[in-house]
């Protein structure tokens, strides 16, 4: 039986009559990077807040490291680092002083933990600047430092690369990958930048209107036959009938400009083409394409962009 770092059962959050999260069953395996995707308002941040005990669930269960998080919150949450949206720190304090507060509250910590965390995010030399004078990118870096300074077993990161410049994004991405691979840290990360998740995640969960509509391994996702052959024909309705009748193909989609995409049986494209022509259809275009991940998820959540 797989042991999960995070598991939720029928997790639900209602704000009055509005549904924030709806019967969410999330499964984040130990040592994996789990990317949570969804449009704004899909329920990603609410889910993360519930996992961190900042928001009380209306219903359902949360298990962290196999335990109900309410049974022993101190023991469990010490193993977690987090960033929720834009990180908040005391504006009159420097980065080091802000991290000192967290270290004090945690009690036990390595002496060099603050220096290490600041070095990783490139803030070690910012000794005098107070948080209120930080740029958005610096604030985000400090948030990451706060999340990793106690070397947690689980990182919950909500949009952690917001505000970072491309070099910063590259650095943090590499750091998260090495953190996961070398130390076996489990990471739950949400981002509106789909390409980032694609480069990081082992597993992807897609949320839409509070529900988890897809939870899929990235390898499995890439393995899936998202390659398709696209035909532009004179009559797409007849083409559909021919596909189903002669080739028993149901996995296709019809698009604008008399275009039809066939996902199954691509190797039979020559025969399909001949069949279309023999039945009086005019084929003006045929090409093989691979559906982009963004397109796939857009289709999954019913159009529009992820994020």
């Amino acid at each position: 039986m797989t042991e999960y770092a995070i598991e939720t059962k029928q997790l639900t959050k209602l704000y009055g009559e509005e549904v924030g999260v709806n019967n969410l069953n999330l499964h984040v395996e130990h040592g994996k990077i789990y990317g949570l995707l969804g449009r704004n308002g899909a329920g990603k941040t609410t889910t993360m807040r519930m996992l961190l005990n900042l928001v009380n669930p209306t219903d359902g269960k949360i298990y962290l490291f196999g335990e109900d998080y309410k049974n022993c919150p101190a023991k469990i949450f010490r193993k977690i680092g987090s960033i929720i949206e834009t990180p908040g720190f005391y504006e009159n304090l420097t980065a080091r002083e802000n991290l000192q507060i967290l270290a004090m509250l945690r009690g036990k910590h390595r002496k060099d933990s603050i220096d290490n965390a600041l070095r990783i995010v490139g803030l070690l030399d910012e000794t005098k600047k107070v948080f209120s004078d930080y740029s958005l990118g610096m604030k985000q870096r400090l948030g990451i430092a706060a999340a990793i300074m106690h070397e947690p077993e689980l990182l919950i990161l909500d949009e952690p690369i917001n505000g970072l410049d491309p070099i910063g994004i590259h650095e943090i991405r590499n750091f998260l990958l090495s953190f996961c691979k070398e130390k076996g840290t489990t990471i739950l990360i949400s981002s509106h930048v789909l390409s980032e998740i694609e480069q990081l995640a082992d597993v992807i969960g897609v949320m839409h209107e509070g529900r988890l509509i897809e939870e899929v391994d990235m390898k499995e996702l890439h393995k899936r036959n998202r390659q398709y052959v696209e035909f532009r024909i004179s009559n797409e309705n007849m083409a559909c009938v021919l596909l189903e009748k002669h080739f028993n193909i149901n996995d296709y989609t019809v698009h604008e400009n008399n275009t039809i995409r066939i996902y199954y049986g691509i190797e039979k494209r020559g025969e399909i083409n001949r069949c279309f022509v023999d039945n009086g259809l005019l084929v003006t275009k045929m090409n093989i394409n691979e559906e982009k991940l963004e397109e796939y998820f857009s289709n999954l959540i019913g159009g529009g962009k992820i994020g």
């Binding site: 807040r49 900042l54 949450f77 010490r78 908040g88 720190f89 504006e91 945690r106 706060a146």
Partner: peptide
């Protein structure tokens, strides 16, 4: 109120406190 205004509660309470 500064804990709300400076949005520090989400980082302090998850220590946990």
């Amino acid at each position: 109120s500064r804990e709300y205004v400076e949005k520090t509660l989400k980082i302090i309470l998850t220590v946990p406190v």
